[in-house]
Amino acid sequence: MEKNMVTIAHGSGGAATSRLIEQTFKKHFDNDILSQGDDCARLDIGDARNLVFTTDSFVVTPIFFNGGNIGKLAVCGTVNDLATSGAKPLYLSCGFIIEEGFDLEDLEEIVKTMSATARECGVKIVTGDTKVVQKGAADKVFINTSGIGVIPDGLNISGKNAKAGDKIIISGTIGDHGSSIFLERENMGFQAKIQSDCAPLSGMVQDILSVVPDVHVLRDPTRGGVATTLNEIAVQSNVSILIREDSLPVKREVQGVCELLGMDPLYMANEGKMLCFVSEDKSERVLEVLRKNKYGKDARIIGEVTEERQPKVLLKALSGGNRIISVLAGDQLPRIC
């Protein structure tokens, strides 16, 4: 009998990834901190309170793309995961796995971009590691980054905190990163020039929290897109979510690419967007703050948490009916981040 094997779908961030985590990693690693289930772990170590820690690995191809490169993506992705807790990011590590024969000038450009992005975020890269493998044992370069931050006293932001009546805000247009990577990778002759939204969002989050500190949930919808992320939050909080198709901010070029290729922007990866769950009476204030930030100028309310205590996500279609939006079942595009 053929043994079960890891497939590309296990790295999609969708249903296969969840099964892999639950049936393999969580089965053996489970503890009270890991079971928090958020994008970063909240830690109390001795007198050091409210620390958060996260790690991520980046294998995107191509490594240089319209809007950034694998180095910028690595810093932004890790900083943004810390920001989902409301933390101020402080320190990063970086580990490089480099294929023999990789161009040193390209490596320097990646490292230089990481340095510039870290400065923008106000974080320091304080430790790291370098490994070189023989040609063919990797694909150019892979990067792992870990991050540490501190949550201000009084903040309690988690995927478990969505409440009935919360408005759901997205900080900008969806599907930009996934569409950009697909066009560059496949070289299909499209005229559309779609730029990845890869961006560091910690400053934008701090802007929000300085005005509305009682945000319930923050989450960056990366692999699996907005649809998968909303499903994860629905399960964590045991709530139902309703979003509206006519409220989803999608660039015309992204919509066109998705329609031609049979893809859905709701499942396309984002690397510079944040979902925010906040009580209705605070939602307009959050929108006002977001729209003053260069990374949030296209922010929009896309739905709300309903009274129904059942974990599911519904889309109110333009036609007027509702349909269930599930997690990503397969893998629209591998190696997206």
Results as ranks from 00 to 15, higher is better:
P89H: 06
K292V: 08
E22L: 02
T173D: 12
P152I: 00
F64L: 08
T84K: 00
K273A: 15
A138V: 04
L73Y: 05
E288V: 07
E108I: 10
K312F: 07
I21Y: 11
D264S: 14
P249V: 03
C94L: 09
G13W: 01
R244L: 09
E288G: 07
E284S: 15
S57R: 00
L43G: 10
E99C: 11
T127K: 10
A299W: 00
K292S: 14
G77Y: 05
V215C: 11
E253P: 02
T117A: 13
F102R: 00
L218F: 14
G13K: 01
T24R: 10
I70D: 00
G172A: 08
D281F: 07
R49P: 00
V205K: 06
A15Y: 07
N293V: 05
L275G: 14
E105D: 12
M263W: 11
L275K: 04
L261S: 11
V305H: 05
E271H: 11
P213K: 07
G11F: 13
T228I: 06
L287K: 02
D197H: 03
F65M: 06
I70P: 03
E259F: 09
L314Y: 05
N50K: 08
Q310G: 08
K163W: 05
S35I: 03
N238R: 10
S35F: 02
K193F: 02
I8C: 08
A199H: 04
E2G: 11
V141N: 03
M5A: 15
V305W: 01
E22C: 07
Q255A: 13
P62R: 04
L318H: 11
N144T: 13
C198S: 08
T306E: 14
T306Y: 08
K167G: 04
F64E: 13
V278H: 09
V289I: 15
H10W: 14
F53S: 10
R219A: 15
S240W: 02
T228N: 06
R300W: 07
K27R: 14
I70H: 01
F190E: 06
V133T: 08
Y91S: 09
V52M: 06
F142T: 06
L20H: 08
K193H: 10
N31G: 09
R335T: 11
N270D: 09
G46Q: 11
K167I: 03
Q310N: 14
G71H: 03
D129Y: 04
K124E: 15
I45K: 13
C258W: 02
K160S: 12
P334R: 06
G147V: 01
L183G: 00
A317I: 00
R223P: 02
L43C: 14
F53D: 05
V59A: 14
D47Y: 10
V133P: 01
S196Q: 02
A83R: 01
I170K: 00
I143S: 01
I325K: 06
V59L: 10
G136Y: 05
N293G: 07
I169Y: 00
D246H: 13
S18T: 13
V52P: 01
L43Y: 09
R300P: 00
N144Y: 07
H28T: 12
E280V: 08
K72T: 15
V215D: 03
F29S: 14
I325Y: 04
L183H: 01
V126Q: 05
P221F: 03
E105V: 09
F29Y: 10
N231L: 03
S237C: 12
L328K: 07
I233T: 04
I8E: 15
V278F: 10
T173K: 12
L261C: 14
